[in-house]
């Protein structure tokens, strides 16, 4: 039985992900294509919302990944703090821009959806506001990584920021809920979703979500490889300077 921590060795990680990445390309793009084409062209229009409802196949998975990406960064940061595997810290760094783009997609598709539905591009609804705050957290996290020269220092500081930020993000969510009750529909895609969304919409949405998860994995793996190589390059250059 091999330990999962073997993949914390950068070489082992790169070797393994090299083999996984091609398959992930096919799998993620295929799943995404199936989910989105199914959702866009082979589901009926909503009786109230018309065809605008179909942006939901982008909006909901992106929003889901926006939060899950932060959660992944939190786990990776904890692993770095506790076990000090460099790959973990670099994976957190690699995931941040992907998560930020997912947040941006969720915000933009939400605005495009909200315009015909609510008659406004933006409302200070608790969900929208929370995602905007999440976007700011991503910005700060990425900016801190970029600002610090020493890689280990940056990994330590951003990990603590991610931990503290997570607590404050949850706090902000409650605060924002308290502050404005809002007009966003409830979570229509939770596990008891059958009650809210009919099967015809539910299945393609599930496929699209799987596609987004796979796409996220793929992007994070590729970006982590890049970060590892960049880190190795900096370390080799630093060593060269010292000789």
């Amino acid at each position: 039985m091999t330990s999962i921590w073997e993949y914390a060795n950068p070489k082992k990680f790169i070797d393994t992900s090299d083999r996984v990445i091609p398959a992930l390309w096919v799998l993620s793009l295929g799943t995404l294509a199936i989910g989105l084409i199914w959702g866009f062209f082979f589901t009926p229009d909503d009786y109230r919302q018309g065809s605008t409802v179909k942006i939901f196949y982008l909006h909901v998975p992106a929003a889901l990944m926006a939060i899950n990406a932060w959660f992944m960064m939190l786990v990776a940061s904890l692993i770095w703090i506790i076990r000090r595997h460099h790959v973990s810290a670099l994976a957190a760094r690699a995931a941040a821009p992907v998560g930020m783009v997912m947040t941006l997609i969720a915000l933009l598709t939400g605005a495009i959806w909200g315009q015909p539905m609510w008659g406004t591009w933006w409302a200070w609804d608790p969900r929208l506001t929370s995602f905007l705050i999440l976007f700011l957290f991503y910005l700060g996290y990425i900016a801190l990584w970029a600002a610090i020269e020493n890689d280990d220092t940056a990994a330590d500081l951003t990990s603590v920021l991610c931990l503290v930020g997570s607590v404050f993000a949850v706090l902000s969510r409650y605060a924002v809920n308290f502050w404005n009750q809002g007009l966003h529909q409830g979570a229509s895609m939770s596990l008891d979703a059958e009650e809210n969304v009919a099967d015809v919409f539910w299945w393609p949405a599930l496929v699209a979500m799987a596609g987004f998860v796979l796409l996220f994995l793929l992007l994070v793996l590729i970006r982590t490889q890049t970060e590892i190589r960049a880190r190795r390059m900096r370390a080799l250059l630093a060593r060269e300077r010292m000789q």
């Binding site: 070489k11 790169i14 370390a235 060593r239």
Partner: peptide, 13 residues
């Protein structure tokens, strides 16, 4: 002393 370059993990340190 500079460490051997082949061990990938070492070069991170």
């Amino acid at each position: 002393r500079p460490q051997a370059h082949d061990d990938f993990d070492e070069v991170f340190l």
